[in-house]
Design a protein around this nucleic acid. Sequence first.
DNA 1: GTCTATATGTTGATAGAC
DNA 2: GTCTATCAACATATAGAC
Lengths: 205, 205
Amino acid sequence: MSAQSAEQLLHLETLSETERKILLGALHCFIQQGYFNTRIPDIVAASGVSTGSIYHHFKDKQHLAEALITQLINGLDQAMAKLISQHETPMEQIHALIEWMLTLTDAEPELVSFILYARHREFLPHQPPLCTQQPFEKMRSLVVRARENGDLPPLDEMVLTAAVFGPTLRIMQAAVDGVLPRPAHTYSAALFATIERLSTASAEV
Amino acid sequence: MSAQSAEQLLHLETLSETERKILLGALHCFIQQGYFNTRIPDIVAASGVSTGSIYHHFKDKQHLAEALITQLINGLDQAMAKLISQHETPMEQIHALIEWMLTLTDAEPELVSFILYARHREFLPHQPPLCTQQPFEKMRSLVVRARENGDLPPLDEMVLTAAVFGPTLRIMQAAVDGVLPRPAHTYSAALFATIERLSTASAEV
DNA sequence: GTCTATATGTTGATAGAC
DNA sequence: GTCTATCAACATATAGAC
């Protein structure tokens, strides 16, 4: 699957044109400056929608952010579900997912930075941590099924998920921090090699 | 090495008593509520130092935070250097470092959360990203030396660092997010197993 | 539903006594 | 160096016309 834009990841079809404009403007502001550095007038400028209209559609700044995060998580979840459905075995699905994560990082580094770093709980205290939500649950279930298939060793489920997806997430983080010499997706082969090695290691360790 | 408290990690010996109290108070506030949710009166209450005195010692809130982050990074760096110096081979040093990271996570989860999640650039735009600083540089150099020793496979340096430390960092993140069933340090053996497998995998992959 | 203009409340920072 | 009291600026949220 090719990389998607931030707009495509927010599935905004059910919303009114104004709400779409507000959420996209807010997303751009939050991505670039962070939630706390974003002032309502910034969202007004970015969205082309007036203060009054923003407050007509959203109770306050916090609820606006909440709606945005919800849409984003749902969008990620749907994109991942579609991607997974296009492949057969758990290991193929894992590979496809990693390719997609790396490609998305190259295409939308600031969006990825927002997702990876975001301490959403700092501005949304009621939000559960990202890693307990659908996208990370999907990763875990893929790993568990690969383990059942015998494609991954019989290690603890949390550790195995961390070992399969942790390196990719670190590379993504390095990429968005600007300390990666090459585009993120060029590391996919080496990352797959580390996963291969998890499975094929000699048993007597 | 046993776990250290937040206070021990900030090497504050060279500072005046008042500056120490201010930095520790601020650290507790930032850890618990984040930088933007912390008001000056919160730091006054947490440190027992008055507003005027705080502004006598630090130009403004941002410079206070900057001083704190610098101290914290230096403290981490020193603790890691000491730990590394107590072991011989790169692989032993890597193992010791991972044990220490996990133990610190159990002892000071909120401090670790602050370090891991902190988008310090959101409130300190001039700060380089954490992963380019001494602590992460140390991780990379350990991995490179282990690779030279033949203890790790000849993969890309960034990928190898991500493969060695990424899983541990993911487990730490899961721990501070409260989604880890057992204390973080109980996963060390399984984490070491994943690193072992990197090295001992059959060559013809 | 959308807009402009404005009020309300907070907050970072300062002034000035001790 | 430390403190209390206060200011000035600003950002959120609202009021009310269209």
